[in-house]
Amino acid sequence: MTWTSQFGKGSGWLLQKIVNGLAISKISPNVLTFIGLIINIVAALFFGFARGDHAVRYFFYAGLIIIGAGVFDMVDGRVARQTNQVSVFGAFFDSVIDRYSDVCIFFGLLVFYARGNRLFYVGLVAFVMTASLMVSYTRARAEALIGSCKVGFMERPERIVCVILGALCNRWGVMAPALWVLALFSTITVIHRIRYTYNETERRKRLNLA
């Protein structure tokens, strides 16, 4: 067994223990989802208030806080399934709160670059924020038309990991290239989903005409 598989097994065991504890507490999964948003807002504040000598430290703290928020993002659905609280509204609420969490994080970065008068990166963060939302929007609209659209690489977990790496390693200036990676691959994912939806709708049109 490799060390990566051992780590995955150990993480899964720990995550299940957390889920078991939360299930016993009878806390609503929607509350867990909302707590994740609050934690991400705290991370955004660390990004926004990072300045001068403490910027690297604040970015590092923000990265750790986003990891904490990710735990809530991972357990809310599991708690819902374990406590038989799965609902259509719960899935909808989780999706909406995820979008707010994404915007909060990128808004914090936008404020950081704006306070430093780095206008180019203000524009880049704004573009990344828009592209990230479009990744989710194109999937939602496509699935309303064709049922499933899970193509594309830059899903939300990949985006969050990219931001975390940028934050934790910003001592070496990693956040800037992380934003470029997000901008590029989010845009590619949007284009991929547009093309996939076009091909799928055209295929169905031909089938209906046949």
Rank of each mutant, 00 (worst) to 15 (best):
M1Q: 11
M1K: 11
T2R: 12
S5A: 14
G8A: 08
G8N: 14
G8H: 10
S11K: 13
S11Q: 13
G12K: 14
W13C: 12
L14Y: 11
V19Y: 02
V19D: 03
N20M: 10
N20C: 06
N20Q: 13
L22W: 05
I24P: 01
I24V: 15
K26C: 07
K26S: 12
I27F: 09
P29E: 11
P29L: 10
N30T: 10
N30D: 14
T33A: 07
T33S: 15
T33H: 04
T33N: 04
F34A: 14
L37Q: 06
I38R: 08
I39N: 07
N40P: 00
I41V: 15
I41A: 11
I41N: 02
V42N: 07
A43V: 02
A44Y: 03
A44R: 04
F46T: 02
F46I: 02
F47E: 02
G48N: 06
A50I: 00
R51Y: 13
G52I: 00
D53G: 09
V56G: 01
R57W: 12
F60R: 13
Y61N: 01
A62E: 00
G63A: 08
G63Q: 03
I65V: 15
I66T: 11
I67C: 09
A69K: 00
G70Q: 02
F72Y: 07
D73Y: 01
V75Y: 02
R78N: 15
V79P: 02
Q82F: 08
T83F: 03
V86W: 12
V86E: 15
V88Q: 14
V88N: 15
F92N: 10
D94P: 03
S95Q: 05
V96W: 03
I97T: 12
Y100P: 05
S101T: 03
D102C: 00
D102N: 05
V103Q: 03
C104E: 08
F106K: 02
G108H: 05
G108P: 09
L109K: 00
L110E: 09
V111F: 07
V111H: 05
Y113S: 06
A114D: 08
A114R: 09
R115W: 07
G116D: 11
N117Q: 13
F120I: 10
F120C: 07
V122L: 03
V122Y: 01
V122D: 01
G123Y: 00
G123W: 00
V125C: 03
V128T: 04
A131V: 08
A131H: 00
Y137F: 09
R139F: 03
I146A: 06
S148H: 12
K150A: 13
K150N: 15
F153E: 05
F153Q: 06
M154V: 04
E155F: 01
R156H: 05
E158N: 11
V161D: 08
C162Y: 06
C162M: 14
C162W: 05
V163W: 02
V163Y: 07
I164C: 07
L165V: 14
L165E: 03
G166S: 05
C169I: 11
W172Q: 09
W172H: 11
W172T: 09
G173C: 03
V174H: 04
A176Y: 11
A178E: 01
W180D: 10
L182A: 08
S186N: 14
T187I: 06
T187M: 11
T189H: 04
I191F: 11
R193V: 00
I194D: 07
Y196H: 14
T197Q: 01
R204M: 14
R204T: 07
K205Q: 10
N208I: 10
L209W: 08
L209D: 13
